[in-house]
């Protein structure tokens, strides 16, 4: 039976379990035995979802110690000979995946958004060149097939009642640690656009007035998010970026202000109930997916809508 390995990063357990859907799609013709690799510590082992859960112990590498995690997976691979390795593209996952791929001398496809089977071979699909095309990529070297997948792109709805075989794994090859963690500070008042039901999102068409979006978001009890164009222009932080290279979001209402709507941007919108967009170009791709298109300047629209909402409140009050 073919074997697949999923790396479970502490704090991202649920998102990593969803990677089982990737494994399921790659193994449509021949199901994989699934194996989860966890680090010791406080993380909860994803029992019931995987055939095997392996915990690296004695010592368990720290979360930021990519070199030791790579060593551990390499050793495990030498023993278990995996056919497929999938890594969640968290910030640390994005450092781990390329190092591991180079160590194993295999190709790596980053930020896979879909799997297609072509003549029995798995095509790893990702948008390329600002989303103007979708590329189906194959790995030409030896196994394992390796890819990274952003959180929230796939969703696993399969079995969760497997008899999971649990085991510890003690790596033999320790490496001297170079990167030493001095201190970590959790960001206070951290709220995530992924948890919000209303997103007011600004793009290239509202760069000049980006700071004026917030009052509208406040009125609609939503959060401000941004397209990559806004982030590239350094008027919005990467943490609120929607899209393939940002976050996958599923709000009920997505208000797209001056956003063109590249394929990468749509990759970030999952199960959005309503889209309203304001754009000077009614033929921008985002408009084709909207419930209402307001043809015109996005900033002007923000101010007019804000005035209308406030007027409504006054007449009510």
């Amino acid at each position: 039976m073919k074997k697949a390995l999923v790396y479970i990063e502490n704090g991202y357990e649920a998102a990593a379990i969803d990677l089982l859907e990737v494994v399921r799609q790659v193994g449509q013709n021949c199901a994989f035995e699934t194996c989860a690799l966890c680090l010791g510590g406080n993380g909860t082992a994803p029992e019931g979802y995987f055939d095997r859960v392996i915990r690296v112990v004695q010592p368990s590498p720290e979360w930021h110690d990519v070199l030791s995690i790579t060593n551990a997976i390499e050793e495990l691979h030498e023993r278990d000979d995996f056919d497929c390795i999938v890594i969640l593209a968290t910030p640390m996952g994005r450092l781990l995946a390329p190092r591991l791929a180079m160590r194993l001398r295999v190709g790596l496809v980053a930020d896979v958004t879909d799997i297609r089977l072509q003549d029995g071979e798995a095509l790893m699909v990702r948008p390329a060149f600002d989303g103007k095309i979708l590329a189906g990529i194959v790995s030409t070297g030896s196994k394992p097939l390796m890819m990274s997948v952003r959180p929230g792109v796939f969703s696993y709805k399969g079995a969760r009642d497997k008899a999971t075989d649990k085991a510890d794994f003690i790596p033999m090859r320790a490496s001297p640690r170079q990167v030493e963690l001095l201190e970590a500070t959790k960001k206070k008042t951290f709220s995530d656009i992924r948890d919000c039901e209303v997103l007011i999102s600004g793009g290239g068409g509202i760069i000049k007035g980006f700071d004026q979006i917030q009052p509208l978001a406040d009125e609609l009890r939503g959060m401000v998010s941004a397209s990559r164009r806004a982030v590239d222009n350094q008027i919005a932080p990467r943490s609120i970026q929607v899209g393939q290279s940002g976050k996958m979001v599923s709000p009920k209402l997505y208000l797209a202000l001056g956003i063109h709507g590249s394929m990468q941007h749509f990759e970030g919108l999952r199960d959005v109930k309503h889209i309203v967009c304001a754009n000077t170009d009614r033929y921008a791709p985002i408009c084709s997916q909207a419930d209402i298109v307001v043809e015109g300047d996005a900033l002007e629209f923000v101010n007019r809508l804000l005035a209308r909402i406030r007027r409504g409140k006054e007449s009510k009050g």
């Binding site: 190709g107 790596l108 072509q118 009614r282 084709s288 997916q289 300047d297």
Partner: peptide, 23 residues
């Protein structure tokens, strides 16, 4: 190279019914 683009295609999207209004 260990990865190869096997094929490319233009993304197709279903058009949604919509209301277009002025600003």
């Amino acid at each position: 190279s260990l990865t190869k683009v096997a094929s490319t295609w233009q993304p197709q999207m279903k058009k949604k019914e919509q209301v277009i209004v002025g600003n």
